[in-house]
């Protein structure tokens, strides 16, 4: 008698328990998103592990653009960084890009859906860490790379293999925990 009543209560409590577990899980995700350890928009870019697709982008006025062949021909790793003058997180990551460039990393920029004069103004204001600077005004090359927003960065190994990708600003923790280990693996 007692046992069957207990099991009935357990059965009734099971859905409630499930709902509570779901709520706790959702809360944990929100907290992790706040702390920055979980990015709901982060997903694996299928390009990682493959060679860069065919593309050719002209440079900003007075700057050298680049294409697939230029990336493939490189003997050192290159960080390809998509950015735009209208993008707020790009401004936030710019000091860390500068630091990386000063440390000797080749960073090639792609101005995504931007006007050349706006890009030039942006770089004058926030510094120019880019060895090469191409324009993708239509955003079609970006989509071919599986980009969904700016800033996004791709680490290209010598030979043109995409080794690492991040769809968020290059903040110090991302650089330390992801980019630097990926770089060490290449060099």
């Amino acid at each position: 008698m007692d046992r069957s009543l207990l099991s009935r209560r357990l059965l009734l409590a099971a859905p409630l328990g499930l709902a509570v577990a779901g709520g706790v899980g959702a809360y944990a995700l929100i907290e992790r998103a706040k702390r920055g350890t979980y990015n709901p928009q982060d997903f694996n870019n299928p390009l990682v592990g493959h060679r860069v697709p065919h593309f050719a982008l002209s440079g900003l006025p007075g700057q050298q653009g680049f294409d697939r062949d230029a990336l493939v021909a490189m003997r050192r790793p290159v960080l390809v960084n998509f950015f735009a003058s209208w993008c707020v997180p790009c401004v936030q990551e710019s000091p860390f890009l500068d630091r990386l460039a000063k440390a000797g990393l080749d960073i090639w920029g792609v101005a995504y859906q931007d006007k050349p004069e706006a890009t030039a103004l942006y770089l004058a204001e926030h510094g120019n860490p880019y060895r090469r600077l191409a324009m993708d005004p239509t955003g079609r090359t970006a989509i071919n790379w599986g980009l969904y927003g700016v800033p996004e960065s791709f680490l290209i190994a010598p030979g043109g293999l995409v080794r690492w990708h991040v769809a968020s600003p290059l903040f110090p923790d991302v650089i330390e925990t992801q980019l630097e280990p990926a770089l060490r693996k290449i060099t």
Binding site: F43, N45, P46, L47, I143, N144, W145, G146, Y148
Partner: peptide, 14 residues
């Protein structure tokens, strides 16, 4: 199918 495959190739099944 071809167009959808183009998107999946770049962005995954997501």
């Amino acid at each position: 199918q071809h167009i959808i495959a183009f998107m999946v190739h770049r962005y995954g099944i997501f």
